[in-house]
Design a protein around this nucleic acid. Sequence first.
RNA 1: GGGUGGUUAGCUCAGCUGGUUCAGAGCACCUGCCUUACAAGCAGGGGGUCAUAGGUUCGAAUCCUAUACCACCCACCA
Length: 898
Amino acid sequence: MSKPTILQDIPKHFDPNSVEEKWYSFWEENGFFHSEPDERESYTVVIPPPNVTGVLHMGHMLNNTIQDVLVRRARMLGKNACWVPGTDHASIATEAKVVQKLRKEGITKADLTRDEFLDHAWEWTDEHGGIILQQLRKLGASCDWERTRFTLEDDLYEAVIDCFIELYDRGYIYRGKRMINWDPEAQTALSDEEVLHREVQSKLYYVRYKVKGEDDGITIATTRPETILADTAVCVHPDDERYQNLIGKTVIVPIVEREVPVIADEYVDPEYGTGCLKITPAHDENDYQIGQKHGLEIIDMLNADGTVSEAGQFYVGEDRFEARELIIKDLDKANQLVKVEEMTNKIGYSERTNAIIEPRLSLQWFCRMDELSKPALENVINDEIKFYPDKFKNSYRHWMENIRDWCISRQLWWGQRIPAWYYGDGKDDYVIAKTEEEAVEKARAKSGNNSLTKDDINQDEDVLDTWFSSWLWPMTVFDGFKDPDNEEINYYYPTNDLVTAPEIMFFWVARMIMSGYEFRGEKPFSNVYYTGIVRDKKRRKMSKSLGNSPDPIKLMEQYGADGVRVGMLFSSPAGNDLLFDEQLCEQGRNFANKIWNAFRFLSMNKQEDTEYSTELNIDKDNLVDRWMLSRLNETIEGVNKEMEAFRINEALRKIYSLIWDDFCDWYIELIKADEQGAKISTDRLSVALNFFEELMKLLHPFMPFITEEIWQHIRPRETDEAMIVAQWPEFEKAAVSEDDQGLFATIQRIISSVRNVRAEFNVSPNEEINLLIKAKHESMAKAFRQNEWIFRKLQSIAKFEAKADLKKPKTSASSVIEGTEVFVPLEGLIDLNKERERVEKEINRLEGFLKSVTGKLSNEGFVNNAPDEVVQRERDKQEDTETSLRKLKEILNTDLSD
RNA sequence: GGGUGGUUAGCUCAGCUGGUUCAGAGCACCUGCCUUACAAGCAGGGGGUCAUAGGUUCGAAUCCUAUACCACCCACCA
């Protein structure tokens, strides 16, 4: 694609904005994101479809970054990776937006016909829809855009209808008049899951009801005095001695002066309030149950919009909260308001409109959950479907075990219209049919009236809950619902990993599992990775209404998509909330820059017209090469393990450390040419370039843009040799050498200690020093001598000596590392007091350490019970420490004594 | 009312099967460096009774039990 870079014209700072778009188009145009079934193993992810008119927020960023990491790695592992993107029509959310927009134009929904409204909704969708998918490209999401689906497009619409009919035929779907959650703002029913309960400060009103024909009265306590208008009984506990005489009597409901009975039911808690409960069967779930049990009248005193209806008699047309104020005043005037107490109370709010939910008796469509939930519960509990983290299994189980029927009808227009057709006014005068023609036929058959025509039947006005379409998503995106045997679904389903927020575990995850087993007899995915919730520094959930969410697009412009990705991934293990801080992105950007400069360094050392080997052939005689290879393989193995356990942050950490700490801080420093201005030898640079390429491969899933950019610069590549499809590094066990790593680590420590000496005594890095090492054994000394060049490369050294037998020179700074003594003669530069302090400090540290080791070893229990290996390790530690201490003390007592 | 998780450096958090990756990372802080890849950097350094109290164990940040505080989820007590 592009020419390999040789010249030194690479900018000092990586500029993400200049490359991101280029590579994204390159990937997309060359079909790297696209998947078709083939002989390879499939790896499938379906995106949690964002709301079609939604805007990218930090939650999406986290979520999709993780998916992209998984997908890109799978692709590099040679799997046929398929990440299906798409959007959700988000019935209630979108409809609310359209209504709002129309309102601004002075149009109310009621002014429009269904079709007119839908035209507006589609217009809105076409205009604002899919922006979020564009934004995902900026992030680098490697979705198969050719497969983009929308839950309201024809095929998926049809699948939802088929699903409804199928479940109806199987006896799971029914129509019933039940208490549902009513959103007076959106004027629709909601499922239980769409109601959020929040604790609020409210008031408990004590109201006096007169007993008919007596001077006596009875006091009830209520938080909703306006519903007094619809009271049809007062209830006490059957055993409550205080009220025995009242049971069976009649009391008079204030204001409306309705005569209602005093009934007894064990539901009432005598301890609470006055022990008397007013019963309003139409406006409270429990009251409804009691009403059913005792055959009470049901008075519905509220309109759909939450205003008082004619049935309320008083305050008609007033909003329910307005009516509350009014009735309190009137009760007070009538001397029937006994007292008002402050209390905290849990109130249900609509997830979408934030309106206070009204329990309402209503005729709706429901889906039975008892059977559907069985395999869905079982297969999560037995880990057929794994949850990461698995703590969510508990809440899943709890929800599944207490699952109630799902109210699936919504009094909205934006969505899949319920395929029920009514031909009469009777409760059962309806048929379920896919088309009008079919409905006529069925209606004729069911009613026995063969003269029925299209004009005699009416389709249900309502649509289905959004989640009634999203729960089919893993099937419908592959047309698997329409055509259960098609090649696509058989190839891609079950999908592999699902990445989503725990918030929608019940809304979506649980239901996909249910529908998957019901319709395909198989799980929809194998693993569910729950992300954390992105919060701000004050722990508040990031939301549009709070305005505390940074604009992801701006963030990416500022730090680069790679930088933001790293920032998100770094501190977010599965299921842990992420307190978002821009500093994290800065860390990501800095990392990108570090990598960029490593690349820049290697490039600057390239020689023109020189071929660099494409194979990683290390110099086996070179400790540094062997060490780097060992570290590389150790990391490959570690990263594979972490990724398989979905510990993505840990995987990234390992790569980060390998690149920054090992490759940049040590390896690069050690391959630098000896003379300034000289270039690294071809062989050395070949090895370095190959190492670097391996690092880029490991990093690619996490930071796709910079890795592709560098990859394409390092060598000329054919299109099919792009980074995105490079083969994931293979772990070679034989390449891991504990000996090499151990020796190199010792050398690193010696060099660090020399650096420390320089820092302590203000010896500048350029100033030459002598370095004398007294090794524990001759073999060790030999190893140091063989690697003298390493010391010399990283330190300005005049004289270097490494022996097993060596006399400590006078006035030198000393350190002891694992029993190896390191001397730096500093005639005239050394401050003896300072040096004494330095040595004493080290002695103190080692003595503390020795104490704990010796303690362990003198404990018989430890020696007898711990594994030999562990005991031996402690013995080695003890010996080493003792040797080091002895030597340090010797130094202190001979050379540093006054 | 039930459930789940958290409490580790000034801040944000890692820390998997109990023992050499066990006390870590980044940021912040202190000291010295514009050392030719990188000051978005380099080198060195300070800083923690791993919430509290018990227990298990030869051995606990890690396992168990309580307690405290925090967070989240679920539930119809007016």
